[in-house]
Design a protein around this nucleic acid. Structure first.
Lengths: 238, 238, 238, 238
DNA sequence: GATGAATGAGGTTTCATTCAT
DNA sequence: GATGAATGAAACCTCATTCAT
């Protein structure tokens, strides 16, 4: 049943149209996927490595092989390009998460898969996570920030919350759990781990706490310890 | 015993000199505390509200009532001012945390006090947290980032780790716990909560997950749920 | 007799070909009047509201319902489009003036009709006047400016000069009058009035001098006073 | 008595403070007159020759011998520099007009002096007049346009209106004259003449009407004819 | 110690014009 | 005839930092 709920979330095009605003112009819809991805990949790379303010649109355009004028035919502002790159990167992870959480596994099995996926994805797609960490640099109206957060976070939160609610129904987790809050805390841990894998400062912070350099370690210990933490939190007194 | 360990950490001046680099010039040491605080408060305010790149040193100097020339007598670069402000703000919270963790309470009692303190502090000192969230905007050598992280994170991590290690020795928490990792996860939750209380995007994210607007809620539910989560994680199978 | 002179001016096609240069390409001649007018009306609207430099040809093309490529099939440059719009708008007024001045009325009767027409036309066709006020923004060779002025001003000047010369012959006005100069001054007053009716700054200037807001007044006082001024100038010591 | 009225207008500093807004920053007040004038002269030259949009602030700064950064310490925007240049140029003419109109001469004597001064000034200070002709290029709020018009036009209008009112009191001009309207028409003629002397298009227009090239003629005929026109307008039926 | 005038590189964004289809 | 994607030069404005006084 939850499968239906979640698949609705990800596939139903009506729903998509309702909540997804576009942060690019019509012209961007018309170009072929190769160029589209090229622009988003290059953009992500620049934003991730130099930060929102440090990134230079002219350089992004050049590296993407298009003129700056054309870039502005696709995106009205630097911020719009940034948000589009961000959504693009986030969607890739969400798809992976969705596949895990929609399975018939028990929540703790899902949790392990989740952590493994987060680790792998963070190593493979460093730049998407770095970009996510740049998100606070959108200084704009409260309204704008709200809309963007809605778009980026609603899918991931639905996936988490739905899975926990299901586990509650099944009796797989402690019964006094508030699914929403636990989903939030779970996400906090996952997100923090992602940053520990990708962002220089948080990498260093992780080393200071654990003594481990994520660039040179294998992931098993990290997975084990985090799983232990989450497992306890979910199962206490059950 | 742990009291000695931690107090060593916070008071021993030799130790301080060893790890604490200065990010300000000599001249800054010589001025009186009032002006010193004025500069750091104003700087923090600007960095917090406009972000690292958006903040303007000339404006900070003006608001602090000193000339820009003098500002550069105190700090060599914008980054140095930023880091000094950051350390100043972080120290204020660390002191509060220290007082809690150095007590004779059991870990779970400490945890509750900790969360309450985090909540209160986040509401009261929004700008210090916002600044912390700007830390990724320091684009500098790996070496520099390492040194800064060391200064900012080592105190807080020591406080967490020492407390958990103590609890382990006393048998107050589950025995298969790795103190360092658990400290890291604990910090992740605390830090995420701080951001949820202060940074626009994370506020919104919190609302999306929990349905609660931190600007208008009372803290008890949040404290209860987070405590439940942490308590389980610490106590599982004990 | 003067009717012949003026009608020659307006209708003789040989004459037209002699002095009227085209500022559009052949292709523009071949399209139907509806599209032709649509382009010129939209262009005028844009130039009038945003100024010469502020107007955007791409937007004009879009609003006129044609592609930018086609626009450049019709006009070689932005300047050519501007001039063509300008001539189009000026012709509309000239036709009205011609009908008045070609009549058998005495000069002072004509003058009153003239002023009334100017007022009505300015209110109705604001954008044509605004465009005329943009004419200085054509920065081009002296030769080009000369040619354009010739096209725009020669008709109106002929109408004025011919009428005054006729009145001189008839003895309807003071005999020491130099028809050309008086025509020039008359035009200055008419043109200034047109600007006072249409251009923001000149509207304001009119208000500062007279205390009257042209947007909210009726025209009779203005007509009366200007007529008084012109009448005296024409009739002194006759 | 009118002398008092007008001198009040020009010299009273309280009055000045009331109506004169500043369009430059404090820093501009502090620099010495030589640099101040250098900037305004160079700025005027650029705006006059290339138009408001065509003028390039970086070039103005370079030609004035200061850095672009410093330019922006003096003026917040291009528009502010433009307006300051404009006021500077207009003040020069107003001073000359003031000296004429404040004299004890009869209005017609003043009129002649006025025209002569306009001619001389237009030849000598072409760029100030050209700038004035660029004034419509200020595309800004209605409020802003209103304030600027007030500053630029109020002095000149007061001078004209006061003089005409005086002449009315003395019985030097026709009694059915509305001083304000006549001042407006008088200014229209003067302004049109200024443009005919300075702006390419209006020079050409003058040539088309009168056959005279202002670059190569002596002024007497122009002065005579215009004086005749104005004299009649003032004196009719007196 | 204290000032603040001065610098100038650099980035976002616009828009007239071209040309392949 | 008609399209509209593509170009890229150029301009306004900001701000970290220096240095003469």
């Amino acid at each position: 049943m939850h499968k239906i709920k979640l698949s609705f979330l990800c596939n139903n095009t009506k729903f998509k149209k309702m909540i997804e605003k576009k942060y690019h112009k019509e012209a961007f819809d018309r170009i072929d996927d190769e160029r589209k991805n090229q622009i988003l990949e290059v953009g992500t790379e620049e934003f991730a490595s130099k930060g929102y303010d440090g990134a230079n649109i002219n350089i992004i355009a050049k590296k993407a092989g298009i003129s700056i004028g054309l870039m502005y035919k696709y995106f009205s502002t630097k911020e719009d390009l940034f948000i589009t790159c961000l959504k693009y990167g986030m969607d890739i992870l969400v798809k992976a998460l969705y596949d895990i959480m929609v399975s018939e596994d028990k929540l703790l099995i899902k949790a392990e898969k989740l952590i493994r996926t987060i680790c792998m994805h963070s190593r493979k797609h460093t730049k998407y996570i770095k970009m996510y960490n740049e998100i606070n640099n959108i200084k704009n109206s409260a309204e704008r920030v709200r809309a963007i957060a809605e778009e980026i976070e609603s899918k991931r939160s639905s996936i988490y919350i739905t899975s926990i609610e299901e586990a509650l129904t099944r009796g797989d987790v402690r019964s006094d759990m508030d699914a929403k809050f636990f989903a939030f805390f779970l996400d906090n841990l996952m997100t923090s781990l992602q940053f520990a894998y990708t962002c220089d400062y948080y990498k260093e912070k992780f080393r200071i706490y654990t003594g481990i350099d994520v660039n040179e370690c294998d992931d098993e210990q990290i997975i084990t310890e985090l799983l232990k933490f989450i497992e306890s939190a979910f199962s206490f007194g059950k």
